[in-house]
Amino acid sequence: MNNLVDLLSTKIPLGDWVEAVVDFLIINFSGPLNLFSEVVSSLIDGFEGVLSFGHPLLLIIIFVLLAWKLKGVKIATFVAVGFLLVLNLRMWDYLVITLAAIITSVIISLMLGIPIGILKAHNSVIDLITRPFLDFIQTIPPFVYLIPALMFFGLGNVSGVLATVIFAIAPPIRLTALGIKQVSDELKEAGRAYGCTTWQMLYKVELPLALPSIMLGINQCIMLSLSMVVIAAMIGAGGLGEPVLRSLSTVDIGLGFEAGLGVVILAMVLDRLFGRDE
């Protein structure tokens, strides 16, 4: 009896185990980790370079034209007003850094997420394995995986991007898989009856029919990336999150509002540009 009470009152050293695993990875996989770090940081730098090339007005004009072409005059006007306001509030440089981090995170998330989603739709074992992982990363407080990211890559935007990818990868995986699973059996049968190869089946039948769902996944991925990029400022990722964090520590309501508004405007612009028309 006493033994049982002892057993129950002994804390399982789960935290220690996780630490041990992370330590093990850091020591034994420094090569791949460094490579990842190099690739990600050069991606971010590259996008930052492109986005801050020339005068900010040049980029704003490009965005407005893009919005006009994709979504029409109303959205284009909104983009113009929103971005000019950000520029005026002296938040533009932060916005560029945030945008570069988002683009990098979204590209990585989609490059991993969509293929995983496709595999998940076709393979019940992968489906079964990925499900608890997805539940885990979607529900655990996002601050928590700032820590391993920090341990792997130190302070800076690479850690920020890693945390963002983990945070934002679930919707593209889930919605790609869902979209493919929802393709009707009769249509898949039609594909097979006319002699589709597995590959033809995927890109002639399944992906086109799953497209609306995949697009929704991409939209969600962008939105989640944005919200995480702000949180990632806590581990030195820079961008719009930085003034937000600074305003918090100095109780500067004015700065907090201006930076917050920058985040909102960026979010709305991205959503209107890459979202589905409602």
Partner: peptide
């Protein structure tokens, strides 16, 4: 399946993202 058979389905099984012509082309496209 490509050479010998053509199949017609109860609920038509047409591809909604393809035009009538593209649907009719499907077997040849494959």
């Amino acid at each position: 399946r490509r050479d010998k058979f053509g199949m017609v389905f109860q609920n038509f099984a047409l591809f909604p993202h393809k035009t009538v012509l593209e649907n009719a082309e499907f077997g040849l496209e494959v």
